[in-house]
């Protein structure tokens, strides 16, 4: 049975996007594929979590994974 990949976006990444998006894993091999699919430039993602742990865009993702994306926060 096929499940989905759940993508949660935070803060300003929600502008023009849903808080949670369910993606079919078809054609998705790594987290970077999700960024491309959701039209999120790499430099706009500071923290990329897969199942709660900070990972790189090259990290593989699979059915049932939860991916969370946070934008850079850098002011003071």
């Amino acid at each position: 049975m096929s499940t989905m990949i759940e993508v949660r976006v935070f803060a300003t990444l929600r502008q023009g996007r849903d808080k949670v998006t369910m993606l079919s894993p078809e054609g998705i091999t790594c987290a970077g594929d999700i960024l491309a699919l959701m039209n999120i430039p790499r430099e706009e993602v500071s923290i990329l979590l897969i199942n709660g742990f900070h990972q790189k865009p090259e990290t593989p993702v699979k059915d049932g994974d939860i991916v969370a994306l946070f934008p850079p926060v850098g002011g003071g």
Partner: peptide, 12 residues
């Protein structure tokens, strides 16, 4: 590790 190369701050 927090900031990717060329990280963009959307606003100040």
């Amino acid at each position: 590790r927090l900031y990717p190369e060329g990280a963009v701050l959307k606003n100040k």
